[in-house]
Design a protein around this nucleic acid. Structure first.
Length: 205
DNA sequence: TATTCGATCCAT
DNA sequence: TGGATCGAATAC
């Protein structure tokens, strides 16, 4: 089993764990993706953008478990996104896998993403990444570090230099726009396009 | 039990 | 820029 230094990063430093996860390779169902973009979510109760902000619910309970588990949730009734749970058990810190580069199983990946116009768009978004790996809610609560789950995370062949990591506000979140907890590999073409959350019209009073 | 709305993607 | 589409969270 590989060595996973980010497993030991405390939940209070989940942004550090997010940086470390860049460049790691996630393999599932015949496809391998190199992680190029992530977002950190704090479990300390101070992060209004986190699904765990209001405490334990049926959806987010794996976030409160041990590090190395996948927290998979469905969004907009049709897409799935995955987080790697980080930090000590009991604190719901996690890192959202936002985008990646397909480095193995290219043909399989293309077949699973007919809407992709080119190869760098195959996993250029959190739900696209899940589609390429053919993962869904069944992966929720499974481990990516001990080989027991459908997905396995492996160390980068060559580490990402700290100077190559860029940071900015998280995508799509309705709160905490000022927190620069989105990290990506600078200049990588597979990083997803930034788009501010479009607020839906509120009921007029 | 009822209603609201989203850590997105795609075509327009 | 807006529509798809549905389950979890929250309001009642």
């Amino acid at each position: 089993m590989a060595n996973y230094p980010w497993l030991r990063i405390p939940a209070s430093a989940v942004d550090q764990a997010a940086r470390e996860l860049l460049g790691w390779q996630l393999t599932a169902n015949g496809v391998t993706v190199r992680v190029t973009e992530v977002e950190a979510y704090s479990g300390l109760g101070q992060d209004p953008a986190s699904h765990a902000h209001r405490g334990v619910t049926g959806r987010n309970e794996v976030m409160f478990g041990p590090a190395g588990m996948l927290y998979v949730y469905q969004i907009y009734g049709m897409h799935f996104c995955a987080n790697v749970v980080c930090g000590e058990a009991g604190v719901a810190s996690a890192v959202l896998l936002r985008a990646g580069e397909v480095v193995e199983g290219l043909d399989t990946a293309r077949a699973r993403r007919p809407a992709a116009k080119n190869d760098r768009d195959l996993a250029a978004g959190p739900a696209k990444l899940m589609q390429v790996l053919a993962l869904d809610r069944r992966a929720n609560g499974t481990s990516v570090v001990d080989g027991t789950g459908p997905a396995t995370l492996r160390p980068p062949p060559t580490p990402v230099p700290a100077g190559d990591i860029a940071a900015g506000p998280r995508v799509g979140v309705t709160a905490a726009h000022d927190v620069p907890w989105r990290f990506w590999i600078a200049g990588d073409p597979t990083v997803s396009a930034y788009r501010r959350h479009t607020a839906r019209p509120r009921n007029a009073k």
